[in-house]
Design a protein around this nucleic acid. Sequence first.
DNA 1: AGTTTAAGTCAGCCTTGTTGACATTCCAAG
DNA 2: CTTGGAATGTCAACAAGGCTGACTTAAACT
Lengths: 170, 170
Amino acid sequence: MADGRTPAAISGENLLFLTDEQLRQGIEAMFFAYRGFTADPDRILANLAYGRAHHRAIHFINRAPGTTVNNLLNILGVTKQSLNRVLRTMIEDGLVESRVGKSDKRERHLYLTDAGRALEGQLSDAQRVRMRSAFRDAGPDAVAGFRTVLEAMMDTEMQRTYTRLKESGA
Amino acid sequence: MADGRTPAAISGENLLFLTDEQLRQGIEAMFFAYRGFTADPDRILANLAYGRAHHRAIHFINRAPGTTVNNLLNILGVTKQSLNRVLRTMIEDGLVESRVGKSDKRERHLYLTDAGRALEGQLSDAQRVRMRSAFRDAGPDAVAGFRTVLEAMMDTEMQRTYTRLKESGA
DNA sequence: AGTTTAAGTCAGCCTTGTTGACATTCCAAG
DNA sequence: CTTGGAATGTCAACAAGGCTGACTTAAACT
């Protein structure tokens, strides 16, 4: 078995963690935790003229500088029109730069400007503070489990996107 | 130490799980996983005239039948006006029943009708299928870690709400 | 030359959040 | 008994951020 559990161990550990009540608690935990997860950046964004959609765009442009609009579209899972509205305001405000592609001039490659990077840093700092505190409180084993479950919860398509980003990172 | 780790073990396990890169991966995992988490109920709701807000209301009314509007407001973290719009359509459509309180007639107690319970079942079945599959793939230790981290990520207020619901359940 | 692709844009619609103002009902304290 | 405050509901207006559909432009591919 890939995870080192024998069939005996699996039936032995009597699957109590798969009861409907356990699953419901997992569902509610996701709901409440996601609120906490977005709360800190939301507070910062509320004072500017931006929202969560801007945060997401800015995060992934920072993560993969030079990404094309199409690529970003796939990562974010929204329509071109929806992304464009967000992108346009950030380009106008000088947070994002859009450069015509060298090899393929139809493509636009996206980069954060200095101002964009500054905001990105502010937002991700806030989000990381909470994440770091949660990780530290929970300990490395819990964190590993956390990531395993989240990965298993993604659509397979998103799993691939996530893994690609992860491997490009470090 | 409550979790059995000695101070030496903590510094020994060199805190690699707290690097900025690890935290960023955790952040992205939350983002992608939440999309998966809501995808199945969203698909069902798209065919009806309801959205995620209706799902949340219906979930917690089912979880705590007879809850007051104010209580639901606190759980959901939205404004009274926002909840009321959602609630009103579901009352009109015969999914939710609103009963005037016995002891305090200002309060309205909320219950699902048979039709409401049917929809709730449909939605939570869909969501549980994915959750169950993720839990099973990840195994009980990972699930425990998942819940530990999520709990640590909540605002303390939400933590209390979550715990109260959890203990009332089973 | 004709088709497909990437990006952008316009218009319109929906859900779901927000504020602010105001009415009603009822409990409880003075 | 009256009055203040609490719980609820309702109306109006607005914004963010999704969506669809239609259309343009430019570039690339075949």
